[in-house]
Amino acid sequence: MYIQRLDHSSSIHHSIAVRHDTAPQNHNVWHYHEELELINIKKGSGTFFVGDCIHRFSNNFYILIGSKTPHYWLFDEQYINNNSGESADIRVVHFTPDYLGKDFFTLPESAAIRAVYSLAERVVTFNDDENGTFNQIFDQILIESPLNRLLILTSLLNRIRAFESPTLLTNHNHTTPPHHDDYKRMNKILDYIRFNYKIKIQLQEIAKVAGMSPNSFCRYFKQKMGKTLIQFVN
């Protein structure tokens, strides 16, 4: 399985696209896209692979993912099995980096949003407040007109900017595989990790998948991901 480039906005001629999913299979592909992505997992649990990070998620999970950052949602079995009777509740917002127009982002007033974009490059997770403000915002943006969605999204990004200590998931130095000639090799490695991370991954085996010696693999993986294999899977 290779990283797929997806386009969530241009096909419908909007700079913002929203979606409400109850079937997590839509997310079970290793992919990236030009658009930034805001997601609220209102109901659901599993493991999230993003950049150089593996992270568990559960109900009421909020995350902002930067442009061109490869990621993959591996939901727990009860949400994937159609016979389990368990459904997820996933609200998704994709938006282009210049969703307010290229000229807007040259204005000094856009500094706060540009700062959020910098945070999103490392992938931001955040919690709702005691009033359920973010939950209400996601409910609202799903049903609003395209114009009102612009205003709601801008307000939401400004709220994220106000966090004193945002939780960042990825390393500053992590490499985005699609921008390298050897991305197919990285895909094989990441596929192997995704399907075997719950058991002890043997260096000899994963090096064989990459077509490299163990020593060469260790150097290669650290160079590309900014972490050792042990740091990445633990």
Rank of each mutant, 00 (worst) to 15 (best):
M1E: 07
Q4N: 11
R5A: 13
L6G: 06
H8S: 12
I12M: 12
H13I: 12
H13G: 07
A17C: 10
V18S: 00
V18M: 03
R19H: 06
H20T: 11
A23D: 10
Q25C: 12
H27P: 02
N28T: 10
N28F: 10
V29F: 09
H31V: 03
H33P: 00
H33G: 05
E34T: 03
E35I: 00
E35W: 00
L36I: 09
I39L: 15
I39G: 01
T47P: 04
T47Y: 05
T47K: 14
F48G: 03
F49V: 12
I54E: 07
I54T: 07
H55I: 10
S58W: 05
N59T: 06
I63Q: 10
P70Y: 05
W73I: 12
W73D: 01
W73R: 02
L74P: 04
F75P: 01
E77D: 13
Y79P: 03
N82P: 05
N83H: 11
S84M: 11
S87W: 12
D89M: 11
I90P: 02
I90Y: 01
V93I: 15
V93K: 00
V93H: 00
T96M: 15
D98H: 14
D103Q: 10
F104Y: 13
F104S: 13
F105E: 06
P108L: 01
E109K: 14
E109D: 14
A111F: 07
A112F: 13
A115V: 01
S118E: 14
A120L: 06
A120I: 04
V124A: 06
G132T: 05
G132W: 03
T133Q: 11
T133I: 15
T133L: 15
F134L: 12
Q136A: 07
D139H: 10
I141Q: 01
R149Y: 08
R149A: 08
L150M: 08
L151D: 13
L153N: 00
T154G: 08
S155W: 15
S155D: 10
L156P: 01
N158D: 07
R159T: 09
R161A: 13
A162R: 14
E164M: 08
S165Y: 09
P166Q: 11
T167L: 10
T167S: 09
N173T: 09
H174W: 14
T175A: 08
H179R: 14
N187A: 11
N187D: 04
K188V: 06
K188P: 00
D191V: 06
F195K: 10
I199A: 13
I199C: 15
K200V: 14
I201R: 02
I201D: 04
Q204K: 15
A207I: 01
A207H: 01
V209W: 02
G211Y: 14
M212S: 01
S213H: 13
S213G: 07
P214C: 07
C218I: 08
R219A: 05
R219E: 14
F221V: 02
K224G: 03
G226T: 11
G226M: 09
K227G: 03
T228D: 11
I230A: 13
I230M: 11
I230N: 14
F232V: 01
V233S: 06
